[in-house]
């Protein structure tokens, strides 16, 4: 099975999901910071996101 077929199959099982464009991938930058994202850090991120809403 080719990679494109694998992607199509994957997208079929993920309603609403879309493939990212090269431009969108370029917007996903690596910060270079060495932050260990612990479960406690995840909770802080979640709380920050909730507060923003």
């Amino acid at each position: 099975m080719s990679t494109q077929d694998k992607i199509k199959k994957l997208l079929a099982g993920l309603p609403g999901a879309v493939e990212m464009t090269p431009l969108e991938l370029n917007d996903m930058r690596f910060s270079g910071r060495k932050t260990v994202i612990t479960p406690a850090e995840l909770k802080r991120i979640k709380n920050a996101l909730t507060a923003r809403k």
Partner: peptide
């Protein structure tokens, strides 16, 4: 090979 995906959920 790889792909970036935006999940709806």
């Amino acid at each position: 090979e790889s792909v970036g995906l935006k999940l709806a959920d």
